[in-house]
C-alpha cells in the first residue's frame, strides 16, 4: 500500500506545531497502524530527520498508552486501540490525518505524545481502596452478587487511554472518572470510601481543567473498551448521594 500521511509535528509544549505531509510506500495491509508509523520513522531516521514521537507500549490493546486521533476519530475507524488497528482498514492511496489527543487538560509534549498525568492525579484522588486486608483474603469470604461483580468488571476494563476526552466536544473526562469510581463503588471492598472517592475524584477532575458533560455520547462511541454512557449517570448518582450524605453529618 502507498499512503499519504499528514502528521502533527510539534517540537515541544511551547512550539505552535503544524501538519507535515509524508509519503509511505510498501505498507502491508497486515501491519498495525503503529508498525506503519515505525516504517515511516525508520525512513525519517535514515534521511537524517527527526522521527515522529508517539506513545505506545504493550501493542496488544491492554495498556492504554497508544493515543492517536486518526482522520478525526480517537483510535481511528475501528472500535479498538490504535495498536490493534490494522492497515487493512485503509485503502491503497488513502490520505490519513494523524493528530494527538486534543484537550487542554492533555498538553502536547512532542508531536503525537500528550501529557496524561491529569488522569493519574484523578486516580490518586480516590481511585483506590485503603482498607488494610492483610494477605489475600479467601475469595468467598466477602460475597459479591454476580450482577455487581459484572458491573464492576465492565468498568474495570477502562485502560485509561483518554480516547473519551479526545472524542468529547467539551474535552470532558467524565467517562474515565465514572468508570474508575463505579468500578470500586459497586463492590463491598470499595464501600468504606464510597463518598470521599466520588467527591474527591470529581473535584480533581474539575481542577485538572476537563470540561463538563453534555451527554454528547462521543466518549462511549470512541471508547475501545466499550465503557457505556450510563457509567456517567452512575457517577452523577453517586455524587448526589455523597453530597447529601456528607451534608447530613
Amino acid at each position: 500500500m502507498k499512503l499519504t500521511l499528514r502528521v502533527w509535528r510539534q517540537k515541544n509544549a511551547d512550539d505552535d506545531g503544524a501538519m507535515s505531509t509524508y509519503e509511505v510506500d510498501g505498507i502491508s495491509p497486515d501491519m498495525s497502524f503503529l508498525e506503519m508509523l515505525d516504517t515511516l520513522n525508520e525512513e525519517l531516521i535514515l534521511r537524517g530527520e527527526d522521527p515522529v514521537a508517539f506513545d505506545h507500549d504493550c501493542r496488544e490493546g491492554i495498556c492504554g498508552a497508544c493515543s492517536l486521533v486518526i482522520n478525526g476519530d480517537a483510535h481511528g475507524p475501528e472500535r479498538t486501540t490504535t495498536c490493534q488497528l490494522h492497515m487493512r482498514s485503509f485503502r491503497d492511496g488513502d490520505r490519513i490525518d494523524i493528530e494527538p489527543w486534543r484537550a487542554s487538560a492533555f498538553p502536547v509534549i512532542k508531536d503525537l505524545v500528550v501529557d496524561r498525568s491529569a488522569f493519574d492525579r484523578i486516580i490518586q484522588a480516590g481511585g483506590y481502596i485503603t482498607a488494610p486486608t492483610g494477605s489475600a483474603p479467601e475469595a468467598h469470604a466477602t460475597a459479591v452478587p454476580k450482577p455487581d461483580a459484572d458491573l464492576a468488571f465492565e468498568h474495570a476494563e477502562c485502560i485509561g487511554c483518554g480516547a473519551c476526552v479526545a472524542a468529547c466536544p467539551n474535552g470532558a473526562a467524565m467517562l474515565f472518572t465514572s468508570a474508575k469510581i463505579n468500578h470500586l463503588n459497586v463492590l463491598p471492598q470499595g464501600a468504606p470510601e464510597r463518598e470521599t472517592r466520588v467527591l474527591d475524584m470529581v473535584a480533581q477532575m474539575d481542577e485538572e481543567g476537563f470540561g463538563g458533560c453534555t451527554l454528547a455520547g462521543e466518549c462511549a462511541t470512541a471508547c475501545p473498551k466499550g465503557i457505556p454512557l450510563v457509567s456517567i449517570t452512575g457517577m452523577n448518582k453517586e455524587w448526589l448521594r455523597a453530597t447529601r450524605k456528607v451534608a447530613k453529618h
Partner: peptide, 8 residues
C-alpha cells in the same frame, strides 16, 4: 541517535 539529550 537523532535529536539531543536536552529534549523529549
Amino acid at each position: 541517535v537523532p535529536g539531543t539529550g536536552e529534549e523529549f
